[in-house]
Nucleic acid binder design. Structure first.
Lengths: 352, 352
DNA sequence: TTGAAAGCGCTAACAG
DNA sequence: CTGTTAGCGCTTTCAA
């Protein structure tokens, strides 16, 4: 087995407590004692047993992050940002993926991997209000992605309606008027998809245009293939859109593929805007205009929320958020529109 | 606090040990006693404290997986596969990313996150033989990605040389002869990049062609931008290649972008083959021919190796591997060439 | 088949 | 400033 505090104590001829004090940088230790103990530590190659420490303190130093799918670059990039943000607070991240399936999301929120984690950051897709109400687990939970819960959980998102309106406004400003929304989800409410659809509708209406259902295309999932088939369905239905606003980048890219197969030029015939700003969008034959959420801020805020709850200091909502029911915080991260070839054309070399 | 074994024992009027027996499905417990204890467990909502259990047993049930970059879809997809494979063995995965930086890789291999993990799966980029020799940590380590170590660590990879030869052979079969290798790394040995370059050279030579250095382009990194700039550099140098074999898919896609900017058609003027088979390659304007490593097998083998070492049963190397120094196993996963538009042209609708 | 007790390695009171 | 002691919740001898 590995060396323990006791071994070090014996070696240094002091008590366990003293060694512990040194290890934990307890202030009131004489320099002489400290160096003596330190030498024993070095000689024995002592390293604290975190499991024991955690048992004692009741915490593990591990946060879980559950996203729908790691294969989606947006979530992969977000996960990377969360890992880095957690490291700054001396937390380690345990990653999980739910496939966006409600059953799996419920499992995770209930603390499936629990007992091992201090807190949980969850990016739900299908999770319902009632699932959260039934949650019986004391680890702090922070939700990612906007939804209209009135539940006592901290909650971090960009303003999806505003972001969608920004995207649509951009298209309108380019003189487009038949703008398809690709990636609606009809079987659930409260999801980002619904909010983006709402933004699409609001902006069209504000411009004095109609927002017919024939321009709203549902998708079964959120990947390239889903965007491709939805786009094909719209065209096959005889629609002649002059622009597409997609739920996310993979859907937008799948759609562009189909447009080009059908001989439609992007952006001349059909302009396309995506959502998420994944790196893939920066290097296609036609680079993708997209809404870029501030992933690093999202990650930082999420980790901060969990850590503060853990410390028992929920703190004020701050300037960037409002306090909701049960002291839950609604935090907003920024977003911006990144204009690339799929809307404004041009052919900048290896555009950024 | 949560309920402990003791609480359950009191409630059921039995000893702690008996409750423990029930929880752990110890065989010799009378059905009557079992159901009585089980009722107490249910009533109190008891859940075992894993930290305590782990302290006692000396294991945590957590495996770490360290990859260079989660933002690279290949590693994100691989990570997902590892998480699933680990779950089958009741292990949880803690994810880390090293940025492919040697210092970070050394840190991780030394057990930076250690004391918390039972085993480690590492996909190194810059890690050197000597770093591993100096490793002083008892958690089993499994290496991902082929390299020519003679070190006592299990090791899982596809045959990079053979894969590269397959790719180049495909291009030669299409009548191409000036095949650029994009993504060489000159500053290190022992890396997959070196092996793929070797395969490229071997296949060209076998075909009676020369393999001039002017057709080998180094890249600073492994992303789209690196492929784009390397491709541009080759063209700017006055080379007129009729094919490109890229170290990985992002590099290949970055290169295709530049080719198209320069008015070169893919595959008519320049055929392109990538490596990794990331989903992005299936939906560009021109879908990407690529080498597809069997990620699920890699993940499954890696987890199996760690778990077996943990159980102290390294087992035979099996039919798919050979035993190396110190009983280390060299396991091979399969790969296959996926032919798409970037080499064979065509315009199948939303090709798979 | 079940109970009692020891102890994994650490931290936190409380003494000294 | 440092030592003693008592657990955190669990598994695991060893008895009964």
């Amino acid at each position: 087995m590995s060396v323990s505090l006791k071994d070090v104590a014996e070696r240094a001829g002091v008590s366990i407590k003293t060694v512990s004090n040194v290890v934990n940088n307890y202030p009131h230790v004489t320099p002489a004692m400290r160096s003596r103990v330190q030498r024993a530590i070095d000689e024995l190659g002592y390293r604290p047993n975190l499991t024991a420490r955690h048992l004692r303190k009741g915490r593990t130093g591990i946060l879980a992050l559950a996203v729908p799918e790691l294969g989606n670059p947006y979530f992969a990039e977000l996960a990377g940002a969360v890992i880095d943000a957690a490291a700054e607070h001396d937390y380690t991240v345990l990653l999980d993926h739910t496939g966006g399936r409600r059953a799996q999301e419920v499992l995770v929120s209930q603390g499936f991997r629990a007992q091992v984690i201090d807190g949980l950051i969850l990016s739900p897709i299908e999770l319902e209000r009632e699932d959260l109400l039934a949650r019986d687990h004391d680890a702090p939970l922070v939700l990612l992605g906007e939804r209209e819960y009135d539940l006592p959980y901290d909650h971090i998102a960009i303003d999806n309606v505003a972001a969608a309106r920004t995207a649509v406004r951009h298209l309108l400003g380019l003189g487009r008027s038949r703008i398809v929304f690709l990636g609606a989800r009809t079987d659930r409410v409260n999801q980002p998809s619904q909010l983006r659809l709402r933004g699409w509708r609001a902006e069209l209406t504000a411009a004095g245009l109609t927002a017919p259902d024939s321009l709203v295309a549902a998708t079964g999932g959120w990947e390239h293939a889903d965007g491709a088939s939805a786009m094909a369905a719209v065209l096959d239905a005889g629609e002649r859109p002059d622009a597409v606003f997609a739920y996310n980048d993979p859907i937008a890219i799948g759609a562009m593929r189909v447009l080009s197969e059908r001989g439609l030029r992007v952006p001349e015939d059909v302009a396309v805007v995506g959502f998420d700003d994944i790196s893939e969008g920066r290097y296609g034959a036609v680079t993708l205009t997209t809404i870029s959420p501030d992933k690093h801020t999202i990650a930082r805020l999420a980790v901060r929320c969990v850590v503060e709850r853990l410390r028992g200091e929920p703190g004020p909502a701050g300037t960037d958020g409002i306090t909701g029911p049960g002291g839950a915080r609604e935090l907003r991260a920024d977003f911006r529109l990144v204009e690339r070839e799929s809307t404004i054309g041009g052919r900048a070399r290896t555009a950024g």
